[in-house]
Each structure stands twice: as C-alpha cells, then as structure tokens.
Design a protein around this nucleic acid. Structure first.
Lengths: 218, 218
DNA sequence: CGGAAAATATGAGATATCTCATATTATTGT
DNA sequence: ACAATAATATGAGATATCTCATATTTTCCG
C-alpha cells in the first residue's frame, strides 16, 4: 500500500469529491492510497486504522472458515466504504478484503476522525443508506442461494458480469462467490455450452442465447 | 393490529424506554400497538406507515420467491427495529414480517417523524450500529449456509433455541429458516436421535449430549 | 526464457439434499 | 365435540452437489 502525495493526492480528491457525504470539512484528513493487485486492504483479525472509500479498481470481501473453506461474500467496486462496520463496533476485522486489480482508495484515519464521524448526521445518514443496501443485497443473495440451483444463479452471474456479451471471470473466484465446488461450476458451464446458451472461447465465454440465459437467471 | 390507549400505552412506554435512542423528545409521537399471533406487521409489497420497535414477542422475517418457495430470513425478538430499511430507501416492503406469538411494538409514524429521524445523529448512530449488526449476522449465516452441511447448522440452531436443554420449534418454520426440505430436516433429526445426541419427546427434543452437539455446531 | 505456481479441464464415485406420495397426529375454530 | 387445517412422520427414488485424482494449459516472476 502506498500513500499518494501532492499533486496526485489532489488529483484524486478532485476527481472523486466526497465532501458532500459530511457536514464538516473532511478533506484535510483524507489520505489517498493505492494498493497493488493481490494486496490486503484488511486481513482477517487485524485492527482497522482507516475507514476506506474505494474509488477505483476491484476488491473481494471474503471469509475463511474453520474448515479451511473460503466464502467470497462480494466483489467490491466504486463507490464503496470498507471498514465501516468495524468503525461502528470497535471490533477486529472478521473478513478479509483483498484487491483483485490495482485499487485506489480515499482513506480516513479513524483515530483522528472517529468522534466527528459518529456525531455527524449527514455522514451517518449516508452510512445508514449504504448499510441498508448492503443488508438488502446480502439478504437477497442468501435466500436465492438457498432456493435456486446453481444453473439459475450462474446464469444471473454471467449476465451481470459479461461485457458486450463476453464473460471472462476466474472460475476459482466464481466458485467461492457462488459457494459451489470448482468441479460443479465447470459441470454447469459445460451444460450451458452444450445447450448452446454460451460458447467457449480461449479466454472466456460468449453469450449466444441471451433470452434463454435471462430465463434461466430467474 | 390494535393501538393501546392510556394507561396501557404509558405502561409500555415506561417499561421499554427508548428516549435515549433519540436526541429529540420522541415520546409524544410513539404509539403502542399489539399484533395477535399470525398477523402481518408488514406484507410483501406494502408501503410502511410506521417504523416499529419490537419490545415483546416474536416475529418472522421472510421472503416468498418466484418459484413459490419461502425463505425465512430471521426470527425477530426484542429489541429490534422493523421497517428501518424502507424508511431509508422509500421502497415498498420486499419481505414480510409476520408474528409468531402475540407481539407488542412501539410504532413511530413515518410521515410525522421522517425528517426529524433522518437528521438526528443520535438516532442515526444507533441505526447504523443496528444495521451493521444485521449485515454481519446475515453475512455469517450466508457463508455458513454455503459451507456447512445441515447437521452442523442444525446442531447450532438447536443449541441456540433450546431452553433448559429442551428444544421445541416447529419443523415447518425451521426448514424454511435453514433453507432445507422438511424431509431432510427430519432425516437429520432422526440421525441425531439415533446417535443419542438428542432424545425425542412428545413436544420436542431433549439434549442428551451437549458436548457432542457443541462439537457438531462447528 | 524457463520453472514454479496458478488456473483450467476431465472422469468417476460418493453423498447431501431434493421431490413425491402417503399416513398419522395435533391444533384450531365454530 | 367435530371437522378442517396444520404439523408431524415415513419410505423411496432422483438429482444436485461434493470429493478426489490426475492431466493440461496459462500466468507470473526472477
């Protein structure tokens, strides 16, 4: 992790203005940092020093279970807070956040700002909205995971992740995200291929029957 | 649903004081209401008129999927907010809340208090903490549901739900809560019985090997 | 560039979980 | 008290999903 100094710090502050999330001047406190791909923004069990606001890049939020299995709870993309739950609860980080690509964040030092943040109605309202959306999203994933077989969930995931009908994600991450074995994920990809819904290419899959895929997605 | 008038209203307001959750005097706005067992506090698709604060009794939060299946997301017990997400997002209720027992709530009328609530740092901080705990809880359930087979999840549920080592819950609700078929739930109960971990009685099960049950719970 | 590590691919048996059907018991409401 | 409804119980076949093992290809880094 690297903190950016002027004039780069100022460049990002102007590119991603977050003053409106607060009722007091937050800018003097903000540090701009960048993480290389594969770095940990938070490690499981660590104590958070910053509340981060991700503005560029992609990271993954995951938890490692006692049995060694990994659940990838969500991919994080801009704009998103990171570490906000631990700010509120003064707990150690229970889930890891690791960068998938190079990531740029605005970092708010907790020791310097915590009292201000926890009494700022503007910030707290934004945070409530953020947390309520987070709870809503994870609730939906939880119930859908229980009720729909992989073929439906994968169809939905392909639709959401494809760019110009081209899907290109790492199976290793996707099986952790959908909570299934690698083998089974491959099985279902093979099945969708057989049925002509998608077509395998060297670096991913091309959607061939978007209508059918949408039907499968629900 | 029935609103309680004085002096009953006052009785509950004094028994369950929530003034400290706000920085302005909320009491004049609060109505105290009771729901009979089986009543809907919120129906899926309805518009919320009140932010509720459950103080007595038990309710269940669930969602009905397009395929007709029901996922019971959580059992709600005091103290808990209900309808807070829709207060923040001005959306229709996506999940139903139905009482399991007779329920008593403090009801805050949204149209009269919304502006005050959304600018009250004290309330918003409490709400943030509540929402962050909610997100944390559902995240844990989500990942454990993916990673652990029913026997482990059921063991944990029995431990949490038993009173004086006696477990007495409706299988119909528990299978919706754990996201498994009724039959499979019965299978696993039979297996735990066979192994002498629990023992079936006329109205429930008695825990016979708490140590073993705790091992199974994780 | 080359070796190590990571990702992808495949086959096959095992098992957790599902659906379906039916019977019995308990609860509820009139 | 009785009928209807809800909950509980059971057997059995089907299937979604898992684990394991191995081979091949791709990516990464020194």
């Amino acid at each position: 992790m690297q903190f950016l100094v002027e004039p780069l710090r100022n460049y990002y502050l102007n590119k991603y203005p977050i003053e409106s999330l607060f009722s007091f001047p937050i800018t003097p406190f903000i540090q701009v940092c960048q993480f290389e791909r594969g770095e940990f923004i938070f490690k499981e069990g660590s104590y958070p020093e910053y509340l981060y606001y991700l503005v560029e890049g992609k990271a993954k939020l995951y938890v490692t279970h006692e049995n060694g299995k990994i659940s990838l709870i969500n991919f994080l993309q801009a704009p998103t807070f990171m570490g906000e739950i631990e700010l509120l609860n003064e707990e150690r980080i229970s889930k890891a956040i690791q960068t998938v690509t190079k990531v740029t964040c605005l970092a708010i030092p907790i020791h310097a700002c915590k009292d201000k943040l926890l009494t700022d109605a503007t910030f707290l309202k934004h945070l409530c909205i953020f947390l309520s959306q987070k709870a809503t999203t994870i609730s939906a994933k939880y119930t859908e995971n229980q009720v729909y077989p992989l073929v439906n969930r994968l169809a939905a995931f392909i639709l959401v992740s494809a760019d110009h009908d081209f899907y290109k994600e790492k199976h290793t991450e996707v099986c952790e995200y959908l909570g299934v074995s690698y083998r089974h994920l491959l099985h279902v990809f093979a099945k969708l291929s057989e049925e002509g819904v998608i077509k395998k290419h060297s670096r991913g899959y091309l959607i061939q029957d978007r209508i059918r895929l949408q039907q499968l997605a629900k």
